[in-house]
Write a protein that binds this DNA or RNA. Structure first.
Lengths: 391, 391
DNA sequence: CATGTTTGTTAGTAAATCTTACGAACTAAA
DNA sequence: TTTAGTTCGTAAGATTTACTAACAAACATG
């Protein structure tokens, strides 16, 4: 028996709807679509936007006039290229009308803050020493830094983004951040009350991976490994950040590497990734090797050995993840003098040799081009995404 | 400077829109929402659906009359409970009006097919020996089996779902399936042309994880490890299947375990997961140990050692994945006499001892309750999802 | 038996897009 | 110089969708 009167095929967009949709939601979607298109390509006419989005010129004009009313979009005169027909009026996001304030709390000893343009460029930055402050004292340091950065803004502030170490839930509550002495600290809500601005708090590695995606031109599926005082990762699948069932996705620092033990870790286990790869561990190991080396050549050799082994250990941890997720792009963030060389070479080689070459042959591993501002810029992506739906 | 005239907050639904939305898309979304609600809870009145979905009774009535016109929903008389007010007319998905045809091509020597109800119950099943057929001959076996199963259906067929081993892309092209001798085989398109029915082809492990999610009551984030002639995995994050950049997500069979080598694998590497854990490897190792054992007690001890070590190896591979994704739920599918015992116990223990207990303390690992029909039922989920937006 | 409650439907309204049509402004060819 | 063709942005009306308001039907309860 074959199908008779079978129901129509449902399109992808309708898969697993979670809520009802009303006409006004259409407007929001299409408004954001236009804004997003304009944000990424810039300098387009209404007709260009209509062609690119599939909406009609009428609808685009209507949406643009709404966006111009909010000072989010501005006209920039007529296109100069000689073409037949009425010349187009060029539009762009009003990139100087708003600024974004962001904080990076992931430094072990220093908190950073910055004012960024809508493009993610750092306009000004400042910082404050943590000086061992913990708990409420640490919160006060953060709040004071935020007030200071906000005072330095020279345009209306679109919102505040904060990248915090530790485990941060969707509501911006820092569930656990040992370095800052926070447990269940409702940072987002407190800062929002304190400033009256929209605030978004996310994990630092998650912020970093968003920055790499939006500003680094990374692909849809991306793993970013952030090496600092600890080791953490941010994961993007299909263009969306993965948070995990308990918001602890990317916490690979205390996963044990290999089957041959390894250095004792502060957490009590032996052979944790962090015990191999953290910046303090690497620097002290290199220092020790250099001190005991008879010649500079010996010192360099020993350093290379230490870094190669650390890279290999990272590769051992990442291989199952790369295989299970079919990842093709891994980005490292951290001190380039440690990571960018034999270490990352050893990591790639290890991953390739431990996974199926046919699937991972195109694997790329590289340093981030975002430098030390990666968390600040990622926090800005969160604000852009939350306030404008753009990124 | 504080925000003045800052744009409104964008809701979650508007994040990263990828396409324009029109009024008719609203209809599709809400229609699917109603159908989904009815599918999952069953036996509700129009007023119940209105309360649950948030839509008005008017809108629900309109959608229901459309769905009844397609024979997807039927009225089942009035509710009997004595309540004030006009008695409600109970509705349900018309669960006998359509059937789903599915195939499971993942058996090493045998292809299976079945007719399923919309609830995922297997109504009838059949199979055919592969007999070493490869390439076009294998396709012919599949097509013949499909014709046979279709002929056995007793109601209009909603669609055809196929779970295939190997790497399957989004268009249902089997990119690579060594056992069947397929490379870039456009199975979905060919079967669709041959039958005139909507066909969905997916990887077997991905089908399995969908079955576990829809029928096994599993959570949003779920890893299913399928142990058979090979070892593969299916991954669900946020209720959505993860396919990977090259559609090879879950291919963990040839990831190397540990840092102490291990058995030589058919792929040329040493210590692949499959070389530890595949069913042929385990059965032959157990057989050999039993043959050489002096007493039954010795044989059992040796068997337990083999299974424990296999479980430990699985845990070593999964620990980084569990840590990176913050997974709390792992399901095993395969021969229970091998997997359900010391093996899975060793896997859990290994994962817990190699990850941060605070995040993975709630980890559950269990056997699937779907048994051998898991791929058939998962393929049905694909059809339900594609044709009705329901699952 | 009157009252209140719940159900499902009918009629009209609001919001969003679309189609069709038009004037404005430009290039290029006759 | 004039004419034709093109492109841009806007205006008016049609279409789709879901909403609000109102109502009849059917039941329980005091």
């Amino acid at each position: 028996m074959t199908a008779t009167g079978a129901p129509r095929m449902i399109q992808d967009r309708a898969l697993r709807p979670t809520a009802k949709v009303l006409p006004e939601h259409i407007r929001l979607n299409n408004r954001t679509l236009v804004l997003q298109t304009l944000y990424r390509t810039g300098l387009q006419s209404r007709a260009d936007l209509a062609r690119e989005t599939g909406l009609t010129r009428v609808t685009v004009s209507d949406l643009i006039s709404e966006l111009m009313g909010e000072n989010l979009v501005i006209e920039l005169g007529q296109r100069q290229e000689p073409r037949p027909g009425k010349p187009a009026t060029l539009l762009d996001i009003n990139r100087v009308a708003f600024q974004i304030v962001t904080l990076d709390l992931s430094g072990h000893t220093r908190l950073r803050g910055a004012v960024l343009s809508l493009d993610g460029a750092v306009l000004s930055s400042s910082g404050v020493e943590l000086s061992g402050a913990r708990g409420e004292a640490a919160y006060e340091k953060v709040a004071a830094l935020l007030r200071q950065v906000i005072a330095g803004a020279t345009a209306p502030i679109l919102g505040v983004g904060v990248g915090s170490p530790g485990i941060v839930d969707r509501a911006g509550v820092v569930r656990n951040a040992p370095n800052l002495g926070w447990r269940d600290e409702p940072l987002q809500a407190r800062l929002q009350d304190a400033t009256g601005l929209p605030v978004r708090v996310v994990n630092d590695a998650n912020a970093a991976v968003l920055a790499e995606h939006s500003f680094g031109g990374a692909d849809h599926d991306l793993l970013l490994v952030k090496v600092g005082h600890g080791v953490g990762a941010g994961l993007l699948m299909g263009g969306r950040a993965i948070f995990g069932e308990r918001f602890a996705a990317g916490e690979i620092g205390h996963v044990v590497v290999g089957t041959d033990d390894g250095p004792l870790c502060a957490c009590g286990k032996s052979g944790c990734l962090e015990a191999w790869l953290s910046v303090p561990r690497l620097t002290s190991a290199i220092q020790a090797a250099t001190d005991t080396a008879a010649t500079p050549e010996q010192a360099e050799l020993a350093t290379d050995q230490i870094l190669t082994e650390a890279g290999r250990r990272l590769g051992i941890i990442l291989a199952p993840v790369v295989g299970a997720l079919n990842l093709l792009e891994i980005v490292l963030s951290g001190p380039p003098e440690l990571l960018d060389g034999v270490l990352s070479a050893a990591t790639v080689e290890t991953i390739l040799s431990r996974t199926m070459a046919t699937e991972t042959g195109e694997l790329t591993l590289r340093m981030t081009a975002q430098g030390e501002d990666i968390v600040l810029r990622g926090a800005a992506v969160m604000v852009l995404s939350a306030q404008l739906g753009v990124s």
